[in-house]
């Protein structure tokens, strides 16, 4: 092998790379936030007394979980304007990622709800709490703690999925890496740096989440 590595032309572009990774993180954060709120609603709907609500929730989950994320992204960005709904590329991508996240978070929260023992709900009833307060002070806090590890895994997946935003020219890391690639032709170097940035970021997120889990996840009594 006689390849001479030259990272200089890539590293010169560090402001672009950093802003790319920043945007990727932001997209993932906003999407998981919206996806979690939607997912929570869907999770409660999936356990509602009304059969109509339950089947709505299961339809929602099974449609979104069985669509590739790239298809949702392209459908929203290129398809929706045909139906008269044009969104700018960043909004469109956030909507796509949030919808996608909502199905996965709904499953996470559904599992979390099932993990709250009925005895704790009864203990809340026995001291005279109404069902809304039981949800607020007992079920939700325990559910969130139990769901934290799965939440972390989903967040990392979503962050990696933000690279798909490059396909609709959202200026995140993959978009800039491609741009620098075509300007400098340092193919290996560009994708090495981009890969390294993704790995470092994901690992950092893992560490933060692990620290949170250590504090919040409940040991078995």
């Amino acid at each position: 092998m006689n390849y001479h590595f030259n990272f200089a032309p890539i590293l010169e572009q560090w402001p672009l790379l950093l802003s790319g990774i920043g945007l990727g993180l932001l997209l993932a954060l906003v999407s998981i936030a919206i996806g979690s709120v939607l997912g929570l609603v869907v999770a409660f709907a999936s356990r509602a007394p009304s059969r109509w609500l339950r089947s709505l929730a299961f339809t929602w989950i099974s449609i979104l979980r069985n669509l590739p994320i790239l298809v949702i992204v392209l459908f929203l960005f290129f398809g929706m304007p045909q139906l008269g709904l044009s969104l700018d590329k960043i909004t469109s991508f956030v909507v796509a990622l949030s919808l996608y996240a909502s199905a996965y978070m709904a499953e996470v929260f559904r599992g979390g709800l099932l993990s709250v023992p009925q005895g704790l709900v009864e203990a809340g009833q026995a001291i005279g709490l109404t069902s809304l307060r039981i949800k607020r002070y007992i079920v939700l806090p325990i559910m969130f703690r139990n769901a934290l590890p799965a939440f972390g895994n989903n967040f990392i997946s979503l962050f990696k999925d933000t690279s798909l935003a490059a396909t609709i020219a959202v200026p995140e890391l993959t978009f800039y890496a491609r741009k620098i690639n075509s300007e400098t032709f340092r193919v290996i170097e560009v994708w090495l740096v981009a890969s390294l940035l993704y790995i470092v970021c994901c690992y950092a997120i893992t560490l933060v989440l692990r620290a949170m889990e250590k504090r919040l996840v409940l040991e078995k009594a």
Partner: peptide, 17 residues
């Protein structure tokens, strides 16, 4: 009405968080 009685359960059922 439930608050008029106090209940102690077999499995304790303390709020773990």
């Amino acid at each position: 009405q439930r608050a008029m009685t106090g209940m102690v359960f077999q499995a304790f059922n303390l709020f773990p968080h």
